[in-house]
Simulated assay, not measured.
Amino acid sequence: MKAYYFDNVEGDQRLPHFDSALPPVSQSDLAKYGVLYWHIPIDQDGNWEQAIDQIAAERSYKNRDIINVSKTGLGDLYESKIKSFFEEHMHEDEEIRYILDGAGFFDVRSPQKDEWIRVHVDQGDLLVLPAGIYHRFTLDEGDYIKAMRLFKDEPKWTPYNRSADTDANQHRVTYLQTFAA
């Protein structure tokens, strides 16, 4: 995992958009915004599965599925899905992703300065975004990611695109009360 401030330069969203003049973002900086991270290498012995099961039990994740985001995996829906994933949105639940293969970028909004922080994730990275945080996702130049999604309840993925209504959503308000101080 590598995290840094997004450079906001126009261009392909799949490019790194890294500017070395901007300060780096550490794992502890991300935690101040409620973003949690673990690196759990995938091994042949299945130790990674035990580690995921342990975190799932500790955090009350009861369900999981696998998503394959690629041209092959999504077929005719690929372009529309990639576009919708990159729309700034929030969820009323945590977004939990364990990367099994491939790589991509999660961009999260810092609540204090309203700036994008780009988080590059690849195989073995587990990222948890808190309910109410504005974020977006895109693949990197590899155009492929296979991820395990974990859920506290029944699997669902309901995005609420950023708007005045979403700003007033109770999950967003609670997020700001908790992490924008």
Rank of each mutant, 00 (worst) to 15 (best):
20 S>N: 04
155 P>M: 09
137 F>K: 01
100 L>N: 09
44 Q>W: 03
40 I>S: 04
83 K>N: 11
123 Q>T: 12
134 Y>P: 00
96 I>N: 03
73 G>A: 02
98 Y>W: 05
106 F>W: 14
43 D>W: 03
91 H>F: 07
70 S>F: 01
40 I>Q: 09
13 Q>R: 13
15 L>N: 15
96 I>E: 00
56 A>I: 13
114 D>P: 00
7 D>T: 11
177 Q>E: 11
85 F>V: 11
147 A>P: 02
162 R>D: 01
130 P>N: 06
105 F>E: 01
145 I>H: 01
55 I>D: 07
86 F>V: 08
121 V>F: 09
174 T>I: 09
56 A>P: 10
172 R>H: 12
48 W>Q: 08
29 D>K: 12
9 V>I: 13
17 H>Y: 10
136 R>N: 14
115 E>Q: 14
64 R>Y: 15
155 P>S: 12
173 V>I: 14
102 G>F: 03
115 E>R: 14
181 A>Q: 06
137 F>P: 00
174 T>Q: 11
172 R>A: 08
120 H>Q: 13
103 A>N: 13
40 I>M: 10
32 K>E: 14
120 H>G: 11
28 S>P: 08
17 H>R: 07
53 D>I: 11
9 V>K: 14
135 H>I: 04
45 D>M: 06
24 P>C: 06
169 N>I: 02
76 D>F: 04
54 Q>C: 11
63 N>Q: 15
94 E>F: 06
64 R>P: 03
82 I>C: 11
89 H>P: 06
80 S>M: 07
113 K>I: 08
30 L>R: 04
105 F>Y: 15
164 A>Q: 08
85 F>Y: 10
90 M>E: 13
67 I>D: 06
113 K>G: 07
121 V>Y: 03
178 T>E: 09
109 R>P: 01
160 Y>C: 10
162 R>Q: 13
118 R>Q: 05
130 P>G: 11
122 D>G: 09
91 H>A: 12
23 P>E: 05
82 I>E: 03
135 H>S: 15
24 P>T: 04
85 F>R: 07
112 Q>P: 02
61 Y>S: 08
125 D>W: 01
29 D>V: 12
